[in-house]
Each structure stands twice: as structure tokens, then as C-alpha cells.
Design a protein around this nucleic acid. Structure first.
Lengths: 160, 160
DNA sequence: CATATTGTTCAGTATAAACTAAACAATATG
DNA sequence: CATATTGTTTAGTTTATACTGAACAATATG
């Protein structure tokens, strides 16, 4: 078996104690942030690993570094790839897939958010046009909400 | 027992069939949108009711209109109040609390989002300063991520 | 061909969250 | 005071999701 980028047990020994702790903490916190954003905790942790380390990480690197099952790595790397945050890469003479952070990871994230607001806007427009004008209050409040989503959408688009 | 704003069984009969259906659909979709945003489905549905109807809705109005338990209404109205989306109101001679949509519901929502990004920014800053400069790649990627969150924060703030 | 490696899928389990129903405290009403 | 109303809280249930571990297919290697 090929030696992986770095064995999880040897991380700490190859760097400053405090640094190792900082990294560990960052990885766990990113898991929680991911969770708060509605993503699996593991997805956030994988992302954190790829933010910290320069080297592309293989499937097995990740299972060892994060101590989770291959199934989870498979599922969550695919998720992150779909979100446009990471991408697969390969090395010649190696069968394994490697993962690295994408160049501009966050723009595509924004596109995902944009798509979601688009759904809300569609619903609001449809509801407005389906409801009779006599429901003035409802029409007004729907307009306000739609107006907000429109502005939000613009703001998000300006970030990409 | 006081007659409530409108009995759920009589909604349809007092308005156009198509209109009733549109409202029903809007309420359910709002539940799903709330869910996608990490909120309980019921919170979205309560919000939808208050968007559609002019009248302040009591606790019991909501339980009847949405066919959910009082416990859920209690929990979720409190949640929506804390998010700044709705507010309690009262009527003289009435013991019940009533709920209405706030005047500008969405700005305070944004403030909540802002607070969440603030956490991420704090983590990124702390991690950057705790990690040694020799970890150039990590420093760069952390900066990029922080940069993104900074811009996002600005964009969100511009909406309020 | 037999064995090993790699990634995916899926059944089952664990965990977390939503929701209900009932108990409860506080207040009002008669 | 007894009873009813109102909102909150909490125990228990349901439901959804994350995660594991093992089976699997595909491919490589000897």
C-alpha cells in the first residue's frame, strides 16, 4: 500500500503542537458551520482539510485524517464537487482520485444560493398573479417580500 | 368560545375556489422554503398565513388554520418573533395573543444572517493568526475565504 | 485467472430535529 | 372558590438525515 500524504497519527509530530491544535479546531468548527448551513458536518470538515493543506488528498487520506467511513467520504466529496467547492484531480500512475479546493470556490456556492432565491421569487410571482387584486393587503405584502428577494438576488449576483 | 377570525373549514367557501387553492399552495411551499433555510416547516407556514391575511391571527386561529398542535404554534411563533419576522399584538378585551407580520420583516432576517457570517469570519481570522506564515498555501486560501465572507457581509448589510 | 485496489451503493443504525399531547402555571371569569 | 382560557414546557413519538459497514462493480496488477 502506498504511503499517503501524511498519516493522521504523524500530523502532530511533524509540526508545532499549537499549530496542530489550531488546525484540529478549525476543521471541527468548519464542520459546525457546514451544519449550520444545512450541509453534513463531514462536508465541512473535508473542505477545511483542503483549505489547510496544499497537497491533493486521496480518498484514503481523508478517511484517515477525519476518521470516517469511505461511504461518507464518497457521498460528501460528491456533494462538495456538485457545489463547486472542490474538484477531483488525478496523479499519473495512481489509480486513486484526489481532491483539491477549486480555484474560486465560493462563486459557485453563490450560484447555488441564487438558484434557491429564484425558486422563492417564482413562487411569489405566481402567487401574486393568481390572487385577485381585491386582496390588497396580501398583494402588498407579497410585493414587499418579492422586492426583498429581488434585491437579495442582486446582491448575491454582485459577488460572483 | 369566541368565534375565531375564520374557521379553517369555511375559508374555501368564503372565497373563490381557485384563490383558496392558491393560498393553500403558497402556505405549503413557504413551509418547504423555510425548511430549505433550516427552519421548521411550520414556521414557514405561519409566516405565509400572516403574509396572506390582513387580520391578526390568534394562537387558536393558527392551530386551526394549519392543523398543528398548540405546542408547535407556541414554539414557532416565538422563533419567528425572535427572528423579527412577526410580532405579538393584542386586542382590548381579549386575553389571547395575536400575531401579525412586522412592518419591515426582512431586514432583521438579514441581521441574523449577518451574525452567522460574523462567526465564520471570526474563525477564519483566528485561524489565520494562529497559523505560522510558513504555511503559505493555507494562509492564502484562508484569506480568500475570509475575503469572500467579508464581501458577503457587506452585500447583506447593504440590504438593510 | 486470482487477488488487490478503488469508488459507489445500499441496508441498517444512530443521531438529531420536528411535532404532538398532556401536564402545568398563570390569569381570568363567574 | 371552582372552572375556563391561554401560553409554555416537557416527555415521548415520529420523521428525517447522517453515518457506518459491508456488498458490489469496475479496474488494475501479478
Amino acid at each position: 500500500m502506498k504511503k499517503s500524504v501524511q498519516d493522521s497519527n504523524t500530523i502532530a509530530s511533524s509540526m508545532d503542537e499549537a499549530t496542530a491544535h489550531t488546525i484540529e479546531h478549525f476543521i471541527e468548527k468548519m464542520g459546525l458551520i457546514a451544519q449550520a448551513d444545512g450541509l453534513p458536518r463531514i462536508a465541512g470538515r473535508i473542505l477545511a482539510v483542503l483549505v489547510i493543506y496544499d497537497e491533493p488528498h486521496s480518498f484514503t487520506d481523508l478517511t484517515e485524517k477525519l476518521a470516517v467511513s469511505r461511504g461518507s467520504i464518497s457521498t460528501n466529496t460528491r456533494l462538495l464537487v456538485n457545489l463547486g467547492l472542490i474538484e477531483r484531480s488525478t496523479k499519473k500512475g495512481e489509480r486513486q482520485d484526489y481532491f483539491v479546493l477549486r480555484e474560486n470556490p465560493y462563486t459557485s456556492l453563490m450560484q447555488g444560493i441564487e438558484a434557491r432565491t429564484q425558486e422563492a421569487r417564482a413562487l411569489l410571482k405566481a402567487t401574486k398573479s393568481d390572487l385577485p387584486d381585491v386582496l390588497e393587503g396580501a398583494q402588498t405584502r407579497l410585493s414587499q417580500m418579492l422586492d426583498f428577494y429581488n434585491k437579495f438576488s442582486e446582491a448575491v449576483k454582485s459577488l460572483t
